[in-house]
Design a protein around this nucleic acid. Structure first.
Lengths: 161, 161
DNA sequence: ATATCTGCAAATCGTTTGCATTCGG
DNA sequence: CCGAATGCAAACGATTTGCAGATAT
């Protein structure tokens, strides 16, 4: 999904809700679309300053929240304390693998896992609205640098939560 | 796993590492074992004060971190901003479903999902050390109170992350 | 016109840290 | 003894908020 389309959709979204189409909001949408990586609010706020724009940090946070509500961005908790964001407009749902060595984030989609989740929810009478699946470990290149890992020995004490 | 055993194991763990067995540490372990629910650091700190113990909030945080490192507790991010903890000593790994209505946390374990995760990691040359799978939605009783949900219509804009 | 947005700075909130003191081994 | 652990209060870092002035419709 290109910026143009995203911009148009965001404007439509705002108008539908009686919200205003403002310069700061559009600037933030464009900056969010200026990368294909995951980014944090502070990072985007950095891009704002690089442009010597007067848009404030508070507005960055407020607009990111709006973009998440509207289904333009999805938040991703990488456990570093700050939230990361990624565009989802026009992208199919996927889950993540986070490398504990270099912080790299890999994306994957597994249909069987998706279905099993729905099955589990159904079995428990749980009405599913979303899910978060994050695999933690070491990517190929980081694993190579940590010999102890290669034989398949787990290093962290506990598995997932 | 009862408190007694947990206490003994924690003492052993501390000694092995040349760390000291102190009153605050043992008190915190016991309080952590005084519930079968998920609890937050602040909550445990509340139990400390109820006992009019002199153990400080800082020590609560420091000891919880120690218990996580040692594989006694597992942290669970419920997206409320604070971390929750649960004992895992003697408990098999499981994942969670969090009810957005009442905050209740249901646990489940699905072998097929576990295996598929390992398979996905393997396919990507990723060395898996852990994972987080959290289903979000509404538990049976909360779903009943929200008629719109029953027909299977999704309400939140986006699915998972 | 006028309700919504914005920028600013101060406030939150969970968690962490520096440091002088206390305590376990 | 002596280094590790604690309590205290101050520091932190990401995010949120109150408010007066600016702006979109």
């Amino acid at each position: 999904m290109n910026v143009e389309t995203a911009r148009r959709r965001f404007e439509a979204y705002l108008r539908e809700r009686g919200l205003r189409v403002t310069r700061p909001r559009m600037e933030i949408l464009e900056l969010a679309w200026s990368t294909h990586r995951h980014f944090s609010a502070e990072e985007l706020w950095g891009w704002v300053r690089e442009r010597s724009s007067t848009t404030s940090r508070a507005t960055v946070y407020r607009t990111l929240a709006l973009l998440v509500e509207g289904g333009f961005l999805a938040p991703l908790d990488d456990r570093s304390g700050q939230m990361l964001y990624e565009h989802i407009l026009g992208h199919s749902h996927h889950d993540h693998m986070i490398c504990l060595g270099c912080g790299r984030i890999l994306e994957f989609r597994n249909e069987a896992i998706e279905e099993l989740q729905e099955e589990v929810a159904r079995e428990h009478g749980f009405h599913l609205t979303g899910h978060t699946l994050t695999l933690e470990g070491y990517c190929r290149s980081c694993a190579r640098r940590r010999p102890g890992l290669l034989e398949g020995g787990r290093e962290e004490a506990a598995g997932g939560s």
